[in-house]
Simulated scan of single mutants.
Amino acid sequence: MSFTGIIPLLKPPGMTSHDCVNKLRRILKMKKIGHTGTLDPSVSGVLPLCLGHATRVAEYIQDLPKEYVGTLSLGRSTTTEDADGEVVEDKPVEETFTGDQIADILQQFMGTIEQIPPMYSAVKVGGVRLHELARQGKEIERKARKVEIYRIDLLSTSLEGPYPEFTMHVKCSKGTYIRTLCVDIGRKLGYPAHMKNLNRVASGPFKLQNCYTFEQIEEAANRGAVEELLKPIDWALLQYPEFTVERQQVQDIYNGKKIRLGPLYVDGQLLRIYSPDRRFLALYRTIEQEGEWWGKPEKVFRLEGE
């Protein structure tokens, strides 16, 4: 059996993204399944998995903003920047912070910030993943990378005692490390810090409340109802404008021909292409030629049997 579409998985803690792909392959008895970006094993939450032809849009899901709810623990830093690592600095907090103080500090991280990727990460340097070097006891210089924090809100606090904690909701760009954000926030407060736990609550249009557990997916597979769980391919592309072609142009789309567009486009803009009966056909990119706007194929999604 083969399926095409996107399953928003509720990833359990303790599994890598690749583990999740392998388990879904066993449940659905199909090979063509891909994830949409690595999620640390200890992190739970939204992990869209692409099935069949939908694997061709995984890269676009990876580029979408992500949302997390995480708890920062102040007073200790670790080798991995999260609760899984060994403590490398222990400095009990001697002052009492207020919620307003924490909230004010968080707002200083809004917008474009720079992060140095943690050693325990999947970032490659010289063709080798940093976590492989870290496990060999090596630490190398890493270049800072720019990421975007679209929103950061304080949700709750537990600020008493030598190791206060607070929980925050972060909406951020691709490539943001919440672990590193926690360390940097701690540094701003004058103390070592690490991420105690993390849950991804959204990945683009895929929300936590719309995700399915492995148990729910397996139950659906047993009763032949997997299609009920699938989101269509174009769900991963809703950030792009749509364009509907005439009925006689559908075959041209399938043949990869360029199409004439109307005015008021931006060069290089991506468009979702639909048939008059609302079938998603392709992803096209705009180009300007001799004063006219055209669309040329980026990816065509022809269904089997058409």
Score class of each variant (00 low, 15 high):
Ser44Leu: 04
Glu246Ser: 13
Glu132Arg: 08
Ile178Met: 13
Ile217Trp: 04
Pro263Phe: 07
Val300Asp: 02
Leu106Glu: 10
Ser77Val: 06
Ala134Thr: 05
Pro241Met: 09
Leu39Ala: 06
Leu208Gly: 00
Cys20Asp: 09
Arg151Trp: 01
Gly161Met: 00
Lys124Thr: 09
Asp252Gln: 15
Thr78Asp: 07
Ala103Thr: 13
Glu290Asp: 15
Ser121Thr: 04
Arg302Asn: 06
Gly85Phe: 02
Asn199Arg: 15
Ala193Cys: 11
Ala103Asp: 15
Arg26Leu: 11
Tyr254Thr: 04
Asn210Arg: 05
Arg142Lys: 12
Ala282Pro: 06
Ala193Met: 06
Glu215Leu: 12
Leu130Lys: 07
Thr176Trp: 01
Gly190Phe: 07
Ser275Met: 08
Gly186Lys: 05
Arg279Gln: 15
Glu94Met: 13
Tyr68Thr: 04
Val300Met: 06
Val147Asn: 07
Glu59His: 12
Ile152Leu: 14
Leu10Ser: 15
Gln107Cys: 01
Leu198Gln: 10
Thr244Leu: 01
Thr180Val: 05
Lys31Trp: 01
Glu219Arg: 11
His131Ile: 07
Gly186His: 05
Glu246Gly: 13
Ile113Pro: 02
Val87Glu: 14
Trp235Lys: 14
Lys171Ser: 14
Glu165His: 10
Gly224Asp: 08
Thr180Tyr: 08
Trp293Gln: 08
Gln248Thr: 09
Asn210Cys: 05
Lys138Thr: 04
Thr36Glu: 07
Asp267Gln: 14
Val183Tyr: 00
Gly175Val: 08
Leu283Glu: 01
Thr180Pro: 08
Arg25Gly: 03
Asp84Val: 03
Gln216Met: 13
Gly137Arg: 03
Ala134Asp: 08
Ile102Val: 15
Ile152Gln: 02
Tyr254Ile: 07
Val300Phe: 05
Lys196Asn: 09
Ser44Asp: 11
Leu238Gly: 10
Val201Leu: 02
Leu303Cys: 00
Lys11Trp: 06
Pro205Met: 04
Thr157Ala: 02
Ser2Trp: 00
